[in-house]
Nucleic acid binder design. Structure first.
Lengths: 215, 215
DNA sequence: ACTTGTCCTGTCATGCCGTCAGCTTACCGA
DNA sequence: TCGGTAAGCTGACGGCATGACAGGACAAGT
């Protein structure tokens, strides 16, 4: 696929090298969960990994570069989110189930990767194409499936033609991503997870099918 | 309101002092729009403002502190977003108009303050209560109004009782905020502003009233 | 001109960044 | 077994940002 893993100065990384590289990535990921992105320093990551800053720079151009690596890894897993939508039914009771499963899967994925997703989100919002691409990779896996679903329903005459399938799918996915990113915020504000999920599912259902769900 | 503006070491800032302070804030805001948050350095802000780093530290404890100041300022303006919802009708054709206006106003506000809102969003997602509070202040102004709207419709029996008004309003507002924050992303991906807005309005309408809009 | 309080900056110690030369370690073929 | 070679790591260094302070510049009133 991408050939071998290489150091910044072009060497091919061997067993040991890949191990330390991975350890650095792991430590970086951990730091991102525990301290603000702005305060994550190379020296801290290196210390945590029991190595020196110079070693870090052997494998990554800078913190951002390493973050991209982690994000790329996560994006691979994220591509699997397609399963939540593709091949699922958007008719009758099944549609409600599909909506619920989508919301569940989405929130869960976000919770597992919240730290790195925060940074990806920021990078994308700041206009960095590399981060934007990764964000797309994850969201598109769902967005495209949803877009198809809407188009299909439109073809059957079950949804208004004037609805832009892409815009609708994109908006819904953006909503899921945003809510997922602020899950803690919602709960401290007084909205419980238990009531959040059904409402998100309701909105998804409404957006895709244009109708109230049959439960 | 908050008494006088004070320097870090407790002095009261006079006319001239407040001017440079403001200039520093303006320059910081400008920097935030043009370069990644992580790379914004005190020295650059000071240079841009035609002053020295030491001056910056007279008025702010650090970059984050100054950002909070700007955010606070913006939040005051953001409180005015309530107007987009409160006292508006959610029945018949008027409801569609209300939805459209809300979306318009929201996207516009976000576009005008996108840089600072990005940082606030990040801070909030990272769990910083100060940023979280500011984000709440802005979003709540809309969320609360929307919550009331839903509750009112529920009281009239026009919306299912099982819908959690708060969760619904919160989700919709989160969606608006997220889409607003990635407006550029949407356009480069091929979704035009022109089709994005009506679809958002449609989702808002569906979420609040539970019905398709009458246009 | 002098005083007073506000305002700004030169300077300095500290600490992180990013790079390099050079040392150690692992692998491999003879 | 023994070099030879490439991989792997680090100490050390110049450069820059940070944050604190003391002292100089400035405006306003007397």
């Amino acid at each position: 696929m991408t050939g071998q893993v290489r150091t910044v100065d072009g060497r091919v990384a061997g067993r040991r090298g890949q191990a330390t590289r991975q350890k650095l990535l792991d430590c970086l990921a951990e730091m991102l969960s525990s301290s603000p992105y702005r305060d994550v320093k190379v020296i801290d990551v290196a210390r945590k990994a029991g190595t020196s800053p110079a070693t870090f720079y052997q494998y990554f151009p800078d913190v951002e570069g390493a973050v991209l690596e982690i994000a790329e890894e996560m994006a691979k897993e994220g591509a699997g989110l397609t399963e939540l939508v593709s091949g699922r039914s958007w008719v009758g009771k099944a549609a409600w189930q599909t909506s619920e499963d989508l919301v569940d899967g989405f929130l869960d994925f976000w919770r597992r990767h919240d730290a790195i997703l925060r940074v990806v989100d920021l990078g994308a919002a700041e206009g960095d194409k590399r981060f934007y691409k990764i964000r797309m990779k994850i969201l598109n896996s769902v967005t495209n499936s949803l877009t198809d679903a809407v188009k299909e329903l439109q073809a059957k005459g079950k949804v208004d033609k004037e609805v832009s399938a892409a815009a609708m799918a994109g908006s819904l996915v953006a909503m899921l991503a945003s809510v997922a990113g602020h899950q803690k915020g919602f709960t401290t504000w007084g909205v419980k997870q238990a009531e959040l999920k059904p409402n998100l599912a309701l909105l998804v259902h409404l957006g895709i099918t244009g109708k109230k769900p049959v439960r």
